[in-house]
């Protein structure tokens, strides 16, 4: 704060941090361009999803939605070997079960690591942090064999089981609980005779609601969008997730893109709705994760 005095005398040089400087025209212009770049592929997906086959053979390219959305959607749903309707149900099941499980088990473990004393807690937490960076996609071959032994390949269990807990979830929950739940509150509840689970249910859970929303949204989005593992274990069955079904729409000798993009659009809409409703939480989750890591 020693530098405050001189600039005061020369107003042109008044120093402001960027976040206190009002954005100028150019900033808005560049940001608008960024938005266009981000949104256009989604918009265009909708354009083709609502058009006939001719729309893809036009120059300049079509940029206005057509009126065939329901026709295209109807075709997607009635394709025999794609199971599109079932795939949407499957994706909802998988993403919901995984999200609920991650929220429950990761907040339990996060609470234990944040507020309870037990032997080996710091070593075990170190283990969690280390596994954060291990790309478990690399164990995919062995995972397939394990699922084969369990007889789960080709079922939703194979897709759900590996997602039930995440190291990131434990880490994120622990950080949040350390910062928001005061030790005194936990202690006084204990002195009133509350068991650990009671403390979790009546003190910790209400306090971490915002973090649950963030972790829940991020987990749901990631699970819904997962492709590689569901493709391996589910493709060829009549039980795909929506991502596998969309990729099935695009396989074969003659691909009809208005169908592919109609299917892709339907499978994207739930996430756009979530971003619209929970965008603030998702932004916060990503930004908080950045500062803490």
């Amino acid at each position: 704060m020693t530098a405050v005095a001189p600039p005061r005398r020369r107003p042109r040089l008044v120093a402001r941090a960027p976040q206190e400087t009002p954005a100028g025209l150019w900033t808005y212009l560049f940001l608008a361009l960024t938005m266009l770049f981000a949104a256009f592929p989604l918009y265009w997906m909708f354009v083709i999803a609502t058009s006939d086959d001719q729309a893809l053979a036009k120059l300049p390219p079509a940029v206005v939605p057509g009126d065939r959305f329901l026709t295209n959607v109807d075709e997607v749903f009635s394709l025999q070997d794609v199971y599109f309707a079932a795939s949407l149900v499957n994706s909802v099941i998988v993403a919901t079960v995984v999200t609920a499980s991650v929220l429950f088990f990761c907040s339990l473990a996060g609470f234990a690591f944040a507020k309870l004393r037990f032997k080996g807690s710091s070593a075990l937490m170190l283990f969690v942090v280390l596994t954060l960076t291990v790309p478990n996609q690399l164990g995919i071959v062995a995972l397939y064999i394990v699922m084969g032994k369990l007889g789960w390949n080709g079922t939703l269990l194979a897709v759900i089981a590996p997602g039930l807990v995440t190291a990131f979830g434990v880490f994120y929950m622990r950080q949040f609980i350390v910062n928001t739940v005061p030790d005194e509150l936990v202690e006084s509840a204990r002195m009133d005779g509350a068991t650990t689970m009671r403390v979790y249910a009546s003190i910790v859970l209400p306090a971490i609601r915002p973090a649950l929303a963030v972790l829940g949204l991020l987990t749901f989005v990631a699970t819904w969008n997962d492709f590689q593992w569901p493709l391996i274990t589910l493709s060829g069955t009549d039980f795909p997730t929506s991502m596998v079904a969309v990729s099935d729409l695009a396989s074969g000798n003659y691909v009809i893109y208005r169908r592919v993009l109609a299917g892709a659009f339907i499978a994207t809409v739930p996430l756009l709705v979530m971003l619209f409703i929970g965008g603030r939480q998702i932004v916060r989750g990503i930004m908080e994760g950045a500062v803490k890591s």
């Binding site: 989005v221 969309v246 499978a267 971003l275």
Partner: peptide, 11 residues
């Protein structure tokens, strides 16, 4: 700016 982030890569 998060629109692409939530969009499935498949789509």
């Amino acid at each position: 700016v998060l629109l692409p982030y939530v969009t499935p890569i498949v789509a």
